[in-house]
Structures are given as structure tokens and as C-alpha cells.
Computed example of a mutant assay.
Amino acid sequence: MVDPLPSLSALRAFEATARHLSMTQAAHELHVTPGAVSLQIRDLEASLGVSLFERRTRQILLTAEGMDYFATLRTAFQLVREATASLTARRRGNALTLTCTAGFATHWLLPRLQRFEDTHPDIDVRISASHRMFDFERDGIDLAIRHGLGGYEGLISERLVDDELVPVCIPAIAAALGADPSPDQLAGYQLIHDVYRRDWQLWLAAAGATKVDASRGPIFSDGNGAFEAMKSGFGVALMRRSFLEKELAEGRLVAPFPLGLTSKLAYHLVYPGTALERPAVAAFRRWLLSEAKA
């Protein structure tokens, strides 16, 4: 048997009063009288069998039990507020949820997102950074960006980012390599890998390197770890040019070798066929494809 909950009105009165530490302010927020708030809290205390407030002259304070109860209820009511805001925003058609990897979000999407927000200030974009696969309908996902070969059954898949992988390092390492380095000079540096460890092997073979052990170096579970290790000067990493265009342009990072590695793998925009019926989703898709093309 499920234990019965206290009156929702009483819980709202308590949560608002505890937040303001004022029945008058709570009453103003809830559009009732202070007397009604006081009565609801007394009924709540009676049903719980504990005192939630210590009442003093012109002041109320939470008791220890009240503080514990408020800590939990504050979180619960905040979750309700967020869920309600998300639901109403989606019904108005001006909110969308995108899922992508943390690396894509950090290095490609977020540096560009302000341009979309400047032209579509009424659209609320919510980003869920995750590697796991989602059920679009069940999880409330509108669009997904996934790294792979594309071709997801029952979904539309559009190739988004497929530029070259190039070795990237900090300026100090690039200076040590010299103005026109040989790929074999990488034998003296750590090769930083993400989960696609074979990329270095393919790049070194294409570059004609014969003295570099492609299997040497640490492996990171995602691109962000490899990027941070490279940025700290730990070694050289293979990264997509488009992910680092700002750092490369400003000279904070260097691509010392001109050769890039192309791959069948790419980032794809994935969505169900009905997703574009919502204007906000259609607008964001158009913007993503335009940014990728640029």
C-alpha cells in the first residue's frame, strides 16, 4: 500500500513559507491570505506530528525537522517547475532537445550556438551530452548528432561534419618540431588516442612515417580527454579541423603537418520523420546544415 501524501496545498504553503521565512510573502506568492497559509501549515504539522516552524514575535524559523523536510520539498517543487516549464515550452513549439557527444558539444556546437540564439531568441535549445542511444519519443529528443557511418533504421540521417583529422599540438611542441617537420619526428612525442585508436595508424601510413609506433600513447574514452591532454602539452592528438578552427586561427594550437586523414566515419544529424513538423526543430536543422556547410 502506498502511504497517502499530505495535502498539496499545505505542502505548497509550507515550501513557500520556508523559502521566504514569511507567511505574508508566501501568501502573496500563492494569492491567498496569511491566515490561510498559517492554517494550512498548522494542519500539515498536525498530520505529520512534528513542528516545522519555531514561531517568535514577528519572526518564524525552521525547526530541525522543518529544515530537513524543506530541503527535500524544495528539490521536489523545483523539479515540478522545470518539468512544467519544459512541457509548456514544447507545447508552444519554441523549445527543442538535442543530444550529442560531449566532444561535439564542446568543440563544434557551443562555439557557434550564439549565432543561432541571436537570430532565434524565442527558441530554447536544450543540449543533452551523452554517448548513449536514445528513444526519440520516450526520451523527448527532437534531434540527435551521432558519429558513425549513418543509415539509422527508421530515422532520417544527414551527413553534417566530415572534415579531415590532423595532428594538433601546442605551439611549444610545434616549435620543437621545426618549420617543415618529418612525420617520423613524432617518434619523440606521445601520441594521444581517443577510442578510435586506429586513426593514428592510418594517418602515419598515409604520411609515409616508418619510425613511429602507432600503438604508443594513452587512450582516452572520449575526444574531450584527448583534447585536454594535448592542450596541456602531454603530446600530439588527431583532431578535426572544424573543432579547433578558432584555436588554430589564433595560434593557441598548431597543426604542424599539412596532411589530413579522411574517414568514412562522420557526424550525422539524425531525427524521426515527424520531427520537422515543429517549426523550432526545422529552424534549428536548417541552421545546423548551414553552419556545417560554411
Rank of each mutant, 00 (worst) to 15 (best):
D3E: 09
P4G: 04
S7K: 04
S7I: 05
S9M: 00
L11Y: 04
F14A: 01
F14Y: 03
T17K: 02
S22A: 05
T33S: 12
Q40M: 11
Q40P: 02
R42V: 15
E45Q: 15
L48R: 10
L52P: 09
L52E: 05
R55Q: 12
R56A: 01
T57S: 12
R58S: 13
Q59E: 06
L61C: 08
A64H: 02
A64C: 00
E65Q: 15
F70P: 11
A71W: 01
T72C: 13
R74E: 14
T75L: 13
A76T: 13
F77S: 09
V80Q: 05
R81V: 14
R81A: 15
E82T: 10
E82A: 12
A83I: 01
A89K: 03
R92E: 15
R92F: 09
N94D: 15
L96H: 06
T99C: 05
G103H: 13
T106G: 00
W108F: 12
L109N: 08
R112D: 03
Q114I: 02
E117M: 05
E117L: 09
D118M: 04
D118G: 00
P121H: 09
I123W: 06
I127D: 13
S130R: 05
H131I: 02
E137D: 13
L143K: 01
G150R: 04
G150N: 09
Y152L: 04
E153V: 03
V161M: 02
D162N: 12
D162G: 10
L165R: 06
V166M: 07
P167M: 08
C169V: 10
A172N: 02
D180N: 06
P181S: 02
G188H: 09
G188L: 00
G188Y: 03
Q190G: 13
R198E: 13
A209S: 10
A209Q: 06
K211G: 06
D213S: 13
A214H: 12
G217L: 12
D222R: 02
D222K: 00
G223P: 12
N224C: 14
E228T: 05
M230V: 02
G235H: 10
A237M: 04
M239R: 15
M239Y: 15
S242C: 07
L244P: 08
K246A: 14
K246G: 11
F257I: 03
F257Y: 13
T262E: 14
S263D: 07
L265F: 15
A266T: 08
Y267W: 06
P272L: 03
G273E: 06
G273Y: 04
A275T: 04
A280Y: 01
A283H: 01
R286H: 08
L288H: 10
E291R: 12
A292H: 07
